[in-house]
Design a binder for these strands. Structure first.
Length: 797
RNA sequence: GCGAAAGUGGCGGAAUUGGUAGACGCGCCAGAUUUAGGAUCUGGUGGCCAAAGGCCGUGGGGGUUCGAGUCCCCCCUUUCGCACCA
């Protein structure tokens, strides 16, 4: 079927027309009054991008399109969908890029944001441009600072010593991302640790709640697992085998317990450790090092005196920074004990072992206890609880849960971030900036390069940091560190519906109407930190009375990754696709459809350049078919073909069920299959057969859907009201079925019959089939398996 | 090393509770049409055998079953997290 001179499909014209109309009519934006309307709300969130100088890349578009498809689908169900987007523009990325290009970030970011905005409009997302957010805008970070102050007042922000990465060659503080295998990413110099006072958020106070709540939220399993704060169990069962103790080198007890004759050695070791960065130190394959402190302690179980060592393989940041070493049953302890000639005792006997079987390496398998006093012979698993109880009774310790979660250090000795709103006064100490004085505006410093002072470049802007103490009025000094970008993004979703307000961070009524977020879609790379921080801030703000809910995201789904030529798209691999020319040639609708068709949305897909012709052809055929129906007028108004109608209802059912589950690729395939069936053999479609395709394709190809909806004579937007088609379950049922006939499990033919026929009827049909008969000849049928409307299997002997 | 997920045509990927493996699309082949085409349309397309038909086929090897991509055991590979977490 060809176009026959009907209207050709020119994507650019259609898309410009509808983008302009949506904007002129405010189709996707909410007024403050509309935000106060609590009816039928749906908050559709996607992770806001960092506006790079390169512009939007395919990965961004993939993420936003998938989320937008979800939002548009909800809208077609009659929901009032709020779908905001913004810019996460503070942070080291922008700062480094600005340094490299010799442009000030305050000049760079606005042009990047403008470019992103242009591109985002072009892909046809349902974004509410009246409620956008830019984290570098003082009108936004005023409230980021407000969040800090709330936590500070609640005692959840605390200043204490912490170590930072320091490159002695570049003479600058490095972010963790800039440390590559223990070396500075720029000059390959080994990175050292410097201890500086820093601000921490006490997220560990919320560890149990962060863990418990995971039960209640609808998140994909993999993300939920990634959030597991990491509860671990110790090995109380092996305590009788503890033959020495190890402290982390930086453990505070070390100076107190070290005996004079070991002091030099210990201090030398500590100094060496201090220089080594954590990444290098934590390499598993590195040979273990350590020194003896000269001190002894008692094994609580055996009462024996055992030596205390310090060693690099014990980390201060984890647990208590001290371990009872059980070389018999822990490989790390075993290696250490062997190297330094410490005693190795077996306390677990595996199959075939007895109490004296020598150990070649640490034994970590199952077995029963030996050399363990009254617990000898007990099964390892069982003994864990028993020994814990016994130790508790003796007052020697109690069961404790440890979390693999550290407090959140939010200080950055950098320029490009929101200043931390604290003022230091000699008399009053650390004083919070009064809320009425917010925002503390980041001054424009022409020289924002980090230097060898080890503090933020803001410490060079004297006119800015010199202030009077808000409490006593004496000369005081601002905090010159800025806060972590993750703080900006830990609450942005709370601000979106509230950007109309400039006198408070959020309005109770509006917030209650829209939050928590109904659906959040984003990348897996943020499945741990960003989501954890956002959940923590939400919980803290709830406890402080600012919110009425605990969990910010009711449902979270991570999308997959787009691969091209066997690798993730990156500039260094040279496999990046620039979206603009593709949208220019095929249109945003085709590009959206293609990206969603590549593979399962939650798994990503393999981008092949020629693949776009498939979805492009589909949209063109859909366009031609709809215009043919329109131009045929009366002729196309007849009743649908019964077979086509059945398939239509099946397709509507399939697509309606799959889209909310993010089954985009299979939904698109179902629509293609249906259109193929409608047009099979060049037949002419009638209107009732194809009209429902328009709202169904609308989430993927919104511009074309609008255009076709209008061409079909409907007034207004296809997205106004609940235009999603419904299906009649009775009409999805096939009248005739094809049943596979097997002999001994191998397909030997098929039979056609009325749906619901009984086994006898099916057998009769099957026995009338030549090929089936041939296989049944001379054999005795021992059994017949009958699966209604599906399969008939003769089991012959 | 630990944890998680996944291995299906030339390629991306489909397959309710175990029930005709390969939907849909790309690519490829043949044909039609066009002055010619990146275009459009029709048909074909897992491998092997000349074939009605048959045999083999979902990473490899075992098993359960009338029947296994799907369930069980062992192994291999890839990807992604976490990495001396006691």
């Amino acid at each position: 079927m060809e176009n026959d001179g009907r209207r050709p499909y020119v994507p650019g014209d259609v898309e410009t027309k509808w983008q302009d109309r949506w904007e002129a009519e405010g189709t996707n934006t909410f007024s403050t009054e509309e935000l106060r309307d609590p009816r039928n709300t749906y908050y559709n969130l996607m992770m806001f991008p960092y506006p790079s100088a390169e512009g939007l890349h395919v990965g961004n578009i993939y993420a936003f399109t998938g989320a937008d498809v979800h939002g548009r689908f909800q809208r077609l169900q009659g929901k009032r969908v709020f779908e905001p987007i913004g810019f996460d523009a503070f942070g080291i990325h922008s700062e480094n890029f600005a340094l490299k290009m010799g442009v000030h970030p305050m000049d760079l970011i606005p042009s990047n944001v403008a470019n992103f905005t242009r591109q985002l409009r072009r892909i046809g997302g349902m974004f509410d441009w009246e409620h956008t957010v830019d984290t570098t805008d003082p009108a936004y970070y005023k409230w980021t600072q407000w969040v800090f102050l709330q936590l500070f007042k609640a005692g959840l922000a605390e200043r204490r010593e912490g170590s930072v990465n320091w490159c002695p060659s570049c003479k600058t503080v490095l972010a963790n991302e800039q440390v590559i295998q223990g070396l500075c990413e720029r000059c390959d110099t080994p990175v050292e640790q410097r201890v500086l006072p820093q601000w921490y958020f006490k997220i560990t106070d919320y560890a149990q709640r962060l863990l418990d709540n995971l039960e209640e939220i609808d998140w994909s399993d993999t993300t939920r697992k990634a959030q597991q704060v990491g509860v671990f169990t110790t090995r109380p069962d092996t305590i009788f085998g503890a033959t020495y103790m190890v402290l982390a080198p930086e453990h505070p007890l070390v100076p107190q317990i070290t005996t004079p004759q070991h002091r030099d050695e210990v201090e030398t070791y500590q100094a060496a450790m201090k220089k080594m960065d954590l990444v290098a130190r934590q390499k598993t394959d590195k040979e273990k090092t350590g020194v003896f402190t000269g001190a002894y302690c008692r094994n609580p179980a055996t009462g024996e005196a055992i030596p205390i060592w310090i060693a690099d393989y014990v980390l201060m940041g984890y647990g208590t920074g001290a371990i009872m070493a059980v070389p018999g049953h822990d490989q790390r302890d075993f290696e250490f004990a062997q190297k330094f000639g410490l005693e190795i005792v077996r306390v677990v006997a595996g199959p075939g072992d007895d109490a004296d079987t020598a150990l070649e390496e640490a034994y970590v398998g199952p077995g029963s206890l030996v050399n363990s006093g009254q617990f000898d012979g007990m099964d390892v698993e069982k003994s864990k609880r028993k020994i814990t109880e016994w130790l508790a009774e003796q007052g020697l310790g109690e069961p404790q849960v440890n979390y693999r979660l550290h407090d959140w250090c939010i200080s950055r000795q950098r320029y490009w971030g929101p200043p931390i709103p604290i003022i230091y006064c000699d008399a009053c100490g650390a004083v919070p900036v009064p809320e009425s004085d917010l925002p503390v505006v980041l001054p424009r410093a022409e020289d924002f390069k980090p230097d060898d002072s080890g503090v933020s470049p803001l410490a060079r802007v004297e006119s800015w940091y010199q202030v009077d103490c808000p409490e006593c009025g004496a000369a005081a000094r601002r905090e010159t560190d800025v806060s972590d970008t993750f703080l900006d993004s830990s609450w942005y979703f709370l601000r979106y519906p509230n950007t109309d307000l400039d006198d408070r961070a959020m309005d109770r009524e509006i917030t209650a109407n829209w939050l928590p977020v109904d659906c959040y879609i984003g990348g897996n790379e943020h499945a741990v930190l960003h989501l954890m921080y956002a959940r923590f801030i939400t919980m803290a703000l709830k406890d402080l009375g600012h919110l009425d809910f605990d969990e910010p995201f009711t449902r979270f789904r991570a999308h997959g990754l787009i691969i091209r030529e066997g690798a993730k798209m990156s500039k260094s691999k040279g496999n990046v696709i620039v979206p603009d020319p593709i949208i220019e040639e095929f249109g945003a609708d085709t590009f959206r459809l293609y990206l969603m068709f590549l593979g399962p949305y939650e798994e990503g897909g393999d981008y092949r350049d020629e693949g776009i012709y498939g979805p492009f052809g589909f949209l063109k055929r859909l366009w031609d078919t709809m215009h043919q129906v329109v131009s045929d007028g009366e002729a196309a108004s007849g009743a649908p073909d019964p077979d086509v109608e059945r398939k239509l209802h099946q397709t509507i059912q399939q697509v309606s069920e799959q889209i909310p589950e993010l089954g985009y690729n299979t939904s698109i395939a179902a629509m293609m299959e249906y259109l193929n069936a409608v047009r099979a053999g060049g037949r002419m479609a009638c209107r009732s057969e194809v009209e429902a395709l328009v709202p169904m394709v609308a989430p993927f190809a919104p511009h074309m859907a609008e255009e076709l909806w209008e061409a079909l004579g409907h007034g207004g937007s296809v997205f106004d009201g609940a235009n999603w088609p419904s299906f009649d379950p009775a009409k999805t049922v096939d009248e005739t079925v094809t049943v596979a006939v097997q002999v001994n499990g191998k397909v030997r033919g098929t039979i056609e019959g009325p749906a619901g026929m009984d086994q006898n009827a099916a057998e009769a049909l099957a026995r009338a089939t030549d090929n089936v008969n041939r296989h049944l000849e001379g054999a005795s049928v021992r059994r017949v398996i009958w699966v209604q409307d599906k399969l008939l299997n003769f089991v012959v002997g």
